[in-house]
């Protein structure tokens, strides 16, 4: 197993299939290291571990972009207009 670089911030995300392609675009466009940890076939989602290099100019932005998607999706899928 390769050692994790010192500046890397690793986060795990549960990604719904509906926005998987969008998130993969960010991952691949920015050459982010990722690892599929688990597939939840029952709920059409997967657990993806993504590594962000804090010193890389684009990685923090990519991380923010991914978290925006997950936040928005979760808001529409589980939330309501009362939770603006």
């Amino acid at each position: 197993m390769q050692p994790i670089p010192k500046n890397n911030n690793i986060k795990s995300y549960t990604i719904p299939l509906d926005i998987l392609i969008d998130i993969l675009k960010i991952v691949l466009n920015n050459n982010l290291d990722y690892n599929i940890e688990a597939i939840n076939d029952k709920e059409s989602s997967l657990l993806m571990q993504i590594s962000f290099d804090q010193t890389h100019i684009n990685h923090p932005k990519a991380k923010e972009n991914i978290e925006y998607f997950l936040n928005d999706y979760s808001h529409f899928f589980y939330g309501s207009p009362n939770e603006q």
Partner: peptide, 25 residues
Amino acid sequence: NDKRTVATTDNNTYQPVQSSFIEAI
């Protein structure tokens, strides 16, 4: 394919990706 999505091509500029699914909602 989402034709609106702009790929990150320049190392110095980050082009945010848009989600067609979320936008459609």
